[in-house]
């Protein structure tokens, strides 16, 4: 009798396990987000001086590396589902083809979704130095002196400047700095010796070498409220996330490389304008 009970218990357990497994299989699907870099509606052609931005700068793009975090799916009832776990980031690199497809895995609850959101870059809680020790993410580090953490984006290219020369630009976004504009010149970082020596008489240290007294978080949220899609059990739903590169330089701020120059990591004003422009850089479509 005892043996029969044990056998029955085991049989029920097995059936129960199988039922759970199949329930799990039928409840979850996958989302694959294909990344697409475009300029003026066409696929980006790297290293080709064929683009013109809203400021009239002719330019080319050599490479783009960027990070997003806090990727969430939105439902009609206002609830959200975080993809992965808190702190997960997604790294995208135009030189690494496999990074151009974000495979979220078969763990997405099936059902209807009304949109998607993510943080461009990382928030201050997540953007901590040395959290990534392996390349390529580690190569995105943002120097501690400038605020630490990681670049949200490196967009490298060249533009034709006012002298008609192809000048390199590093359109890099990350934590900005607040410089002490009232500090005496002798306190300017690494320029002090020059400022006080005779052979540098008349030398005016650039603003960017003033002492830093604070930092500014430049990350921003991107939300697609009305891009409905469904996730079906055991199937993959394909979305396409497009980065419209020309929009970094367009709306609401006309971004002119001739004004901001080749490097902006130490120019908060430039990064602020760029990040404001970031609000309509992305487009989500269902494939």
């Amino acid at each position: 009798m005892k043996r029969i009970l044990i056998t029955l218990f085991m049989a029920v357990s097995l059936v129960s396990c199988n039922k759970n497994q199949s329930k799990q299989e039928t409840d979850e699907g996958n989302i694959i987000i294909e990344i697409n870099h475009t300029v003026d509606g066409k696929q980006l052609e790297t290293d080709q001086m064929i683009y013109t931005n809203a400021a009239g700068n002719k330019y080319l793009v050599s490479e783009i590396q960027w990070m997003i975090s806090d990727l969430k799916l939105h439902r009609a009832d206002g609830s959200t589902i975080l993809i992965g776990k808190e702190g997960d980031i997604f790294y995208i690199d135009s030189d690494i083809p496999e990074s151009m497809q974000l495979d979220l895995g078969f763990g997405v609850k099936s059902g209807d979704y009304t949109g998607l959101s993510f943080t461009f870059g990382m928030n201050e809680l997540q953007n901590k130095s040395l959290r990534f020790v392996n390349p390529p993410e580690s190569f995105m580090f943002w120097p501690d002196y400038l605020g630490g953490g990681y670049h949200y984006m490196k967009l490298n290219g060249k533009w034709i400047n006012t002298d008609d020369v192809a000048q390199p630009f590093n359109f890099h976004l990350g934590i900005g700095q607040v410089y002490d504009t009232l500090a005496p010149k002798s306190s300017y970082v690494s320029r002090s010796a020059c400022c006080t020596s005779a052979h540098c008489e008349g030398y005016t240290p650039p603003e960017k070498t003033m002492p830093i007294i604070g930092f500014i978080q430049n990350y921003f949220d991107v939300r697609f409220e009305d891009t409905s899609f469904s996730v079906h059990a055991s199937k993959s739903t394909k979305l396409q996330l497009e980065m419209k590169i020309e929009n970094w330089f367009k709306n609401p701020n006309i971004y002119d490389h001739n004004i901001w120059g080749g490097s902006i990591m130490q120019q908060q004003k430039a990064m602020k304008k760029a990040c404001e422009n970031g609000i309509d850089v992305f487009r989500l479509t269902v494939k």
């Binding site: 130095s129 390349p135 890099h172 690494s190 650039p206 130490q266």
Partner: peptide, 30 residues
């Protein structure tokens, strides 16, 4: 001072290719 120069674009701007605090290999190997 040298470290600041090494890791700032307006300084010596070495860090993008040669690493720094976040990449202590001091190279990207690229």
């Amino acid at each position: 001072n040298g470290f600041v120069l090494f890791t700032t674009e307006e300084g010596a701007d070495c860090f993008h290719c040669h690493g720094g605090g976040g990449n202590p290999l001091f190279t990207t190997h690229l």
